[in-house]
Structures are given as structure tokens and as C-alpha cells.
Design a binder for these strands. Structure first.
Lengths: 233, 233
DNA sequence: GTTTTCAGTGCACGTTTGTACACTCACTAG
DNA sequence: CTAGTGAGTGTACAAACGTGCACTGAAAAC
């Protein structure tokens, strides 16, 4: 058994060379660059693996194997899989933050905010399904540290939206608390949309349109509710 | 190692006796009863274990050990942990279904449906936190079979609510599609409430009230939106 | 009373896991 | 040019895992 391991040492090394995540440059790499490259490969590989199994069901050895390094080398980058998970939250939140920025940019141009927002959401989910899948899956999934990291970032997201809503409802006298309530409902609703999108994209991509229509109508319903809020407090 | 296992067999058996799920009757048990008892113990034990780790991170051996049987005896009840997971979905959906019934019953008596509904929800979550925790955790968590089972039951839940909404909005001419949309938003919102409740109950039970208040306001916002829906289709 | 059934036992196996330890050797700093 | 650093290697091990197989013994069926 271990003799076999010895026999495949050559394989292991050549795999390590050929497994380059993105660069594929065999030269012109400083030591720090190469380390960062490997770290990124660990993150990428885990993101792919987590698409079909939860993070807590993925082994350190599997990640290392897939990244083309020996298990013990993993520790040069992360103290544990949990720590990698937390790092992966940061990594995965980037497209989500980008999404907000995109949504704000396109706002002034068109008339219908809701249609734009949902379209941006759909595009981001399609383009970064691995990240969204990871976030929605681990949000209430396995490791406590990861769950907390996601919850924190998501709260920031909601309070960002609250600020936006405050700007839009400047005329009416909404309390911050009520605005937060509405923002929270919107985020919850759109997170539901994300989950639906992720589940449907795998088999029948044709009813993506139905999901997006549902999302738009739900957001519209909320906005209508906000319009009627003051009249019946 | 195996000598040690042999040494603790006595413990294991006595544990098996003291671990009784509900009955605690050492006598007057038919074979079928005893089997059912053990099956239930496997389900209960897994439900407890799944409170801190996702289902896919729990081993068959661990469940068997905790239930006081030898690992191979597990197969007398379930072919795999996945199958047990699916059975656990059914088991966990029961209090949820009970919840609907309770909500319907209390409806005629009081005036405010929303306050009643949220109160019933809170009570059920408090009383059956293990089940709710399992459902919300595994809804997008690990095993595909379990995920599908939950999704199916949840769809039934939503369409039940749609029927209720149809009765309440008998006067207005809502389309079934729009009613379903509103019902879906309500379910999504209340599922978010459940998740919040589960996360908070662990540490500071004092701000449960704040969560329930949020839930009530969000439902009220949706209802207000429904009232305004026709005016701006 | 004899036979059949079957939930639960005990042992064994091959795999995979996380991690400790000593190492190599290309790059970096001096 | 030399010394040191540190990312990655190779070996080892104890523990846990899922599962196959032959078994026991009390309850069920006859």
C-alpha cells in the first residue's frame, strides 16, 4: 500500500506542475507569487467541490489532492478546513458586493428599478453560481465560524439597502426601523430567488424566466405595501 | 482496540436500555414494537446530532453508537444515512403540518390573523427546535435526496396557504398565479423568521420579541401590498 | 414442541482521514 | 558568494469509517 504510494510519487509531482489553476506560467514567478497561486488554487478547488457536498463533508486531503499538493502542505496556507471556509466567504462575497455597485450604477438610466435589479441579480447568479451556491448552502449549513461570517456580511448588505431605501423614500416619513424591516424582507425574498435559480439552472434552464417574473412581482408587491404603509400603521 | 470494544459491550447494551425514546417499558414488547422503538431511537439520536453538524458530517457509526446498537445493525432499519435523512424529513414535517392546523383553528376566534399566525409559529419553533433546525439546515445543505424531500413538502405547504389566501380574498379578483406568488413570499418570509429564531434562541432569548415583531410587520407589509395590488397591475 | 425468522452481535477487512516529523532545494536576503 | 527561509515532499501512524460475513437467541409461526 505504502509501496504503491512510493511508486506514484513521480505522478504526484508532475500533477502538481500540470494542475496550474489559471496562470500556467512555468517561469517568472517569485516565491510569494507561487504561494498566492497555490492558495488561490485551494480556494478554487474547494469552491468547485462544495457544489455537490457541504463544506463539512469535504476532507482536507481531498482538497490538497485536487489542488496538486501533498496533504501536509495544506497547513502552509490554512490551519484547518474551517479557516479555509471563512476565507472562502470573503472570496465569495466579492461578486455580491459588485452586484450592489452594478445595481446602483444602472439605476439613474432606466425607469424601472425592480426590473433592473432582478436582471442584475440573475446575471450575477449565472456568472458566479459556485459562489452563490456556496453562500446559500453554508448559510445555515455546517461550520459555525463560516455561518457567522456569512451572517455578518449579509447584515452589511441589508443595511446598505436600508440606506438606499431611505434615499428613495425621502418624502415619506419612514422610521429607520421600518426601513430596515422592508429591506430585510427584500433581501430575504431575493435570497429565496437566488436559491430557486441555483436549483433550476441544473436541469431545466427554460423556467428561469418564470422565477425572475416571480421575483419581480414579489418585489413589486413589497413596494406597493410600502406605499400603503403609512395609511394604516 | 477490538478487545476494548468487547469490554464495553455491557455498557452499550445498558445504554440501549436507558436510551429509550419514549416508552421506557422493559417488558411487554413484541418484536415489531422493539424494532420500531430502535428505529425511532435512530431518528431521535440523529435529530439531536444534526443540531451542531450537518447530516452529511454525521457517520453511520456515530448514530448507531449513540442509539446503543452495533454499526451493522443499522442496516436492519435503513440502507444508508441518506435514507434515514429522508425518513427524518417526514418526521420533522409533522409539527409543521400541525402548525397549519393550529393556525386555522385559532383563526375564527380572534381578530388579528397575523398576530395569531406569528404566535403559533413562535410556539412551534420553540417546542420543536430540533426539527426546524434540521429542516432549515438541510434545505439547501447536503444530500440531494433530502433536499428534494424538503422542497416537495414545502411546496405542499405553500399551495395550502394559497388556498387559504383564495378564501380570504374572495371578493377581489386575484388570479391563482398572483395568489401563489403572495403565498410564496409569505412562506419565504416566515422561513427567514424561523432561521432567525433558531439562531437567537441559543444565546440571548430576550430579543425573540424583536424578531417576532419584525415578522409581524413584514407580514403586514405584504398584506398591505396585496390590498394595493389591483390598483397598479 | 419444533422450526423459522430476524434484530442485534462480534470480528475482520480495506480505505480514508488528520496530523506529526524530518527532509529537500529553489528562491531571497545579507 | 554564502546562509537562511519556507513551500512543498515523503513517510508514518493511530483513529475512524462503511460494510461483508457468520453468529446467537428470543420471539413468531407452524
Amino acid at each position: 500500500m505504502y509501496a504503491r504510494t512510493l511508486g506514484t510519487v513521480g505522478d504526484s509531482r508532475s500533477q502538481s506542475r500540470s494542475h496550474g489553476a489559471s496562470g500556467e506560467r512555468p517561469e517568472s514567478t517569485s516565491r510569494a507569487e507561487r504561494k498566492e497561486r497555490t492558495r488561490q488554487r485551494l480556494l478554487d478547488v474547494t469552491l468547485h467541490l462544495v457544489n455537490e457536498r457541504s463544506l463539512s463533508a469535504i476532507s482536507l486531503r481531498e482538497v490538497a489532492r485536487e489542488a496538486g499538493i501533498v496533504p501536509t502542505a495544506f497547513y502552509r496556507h490554512f490551519a484547518s478546513m474551517d479557516e479555509l471556509g471563512v476565507a472562502l466567504v470573503d472570496e465569495s462575497m466579492r461578486p455580491l458586493r459588485q452586484m450592489i455597485r452594478d445595481a446602483r450604477r444602472g439605476r439613474a438610466a432606466h425607469s424601472d428599478i425592480i426590473v433592473d435589479t432582478v436582471a442584475v441579480l440573475a446575471k450575477q447568479v449565472r456568472g458566479h453560481s459556485d459562489q452563490f451556491s456556496f453562500l446559500t448552502r453554508e448559510r445555515f449549513g455546517g461550520v459555525a465560524a463560516v455561518r457567522r461570517a456569512i451572517a455578518t456580511d449579509l447584515r452589511l448588505f441589508t443595511s446598505d439597502l436600508t440606506v438606499d431605501l431611505a434615499r428613495l423614500t425621502a418624502g415619506y416619513d419612514w422610521s429607520t426601523d421600518d426601513l430596515e424591516m422592508a429591506a430585510d424582507l427584500m433581501v430575504t425574498s431575493m435570497l429565496g430567488t437566488v436559491m430557486d435559480l441555483l436549483e433550476v439552472d441544473e436541469r431545466h434552464p427554460e423556467d428561469t424566466a418564470a422565477i425572475l417574473d416571480l421575483a419581480e412581482r414579489q418585489l413589486r408587491l413589497i413596494v406597493l405595501g410600502m406605499g400603503a404603509w403609512r395609511s394604516k400603521p
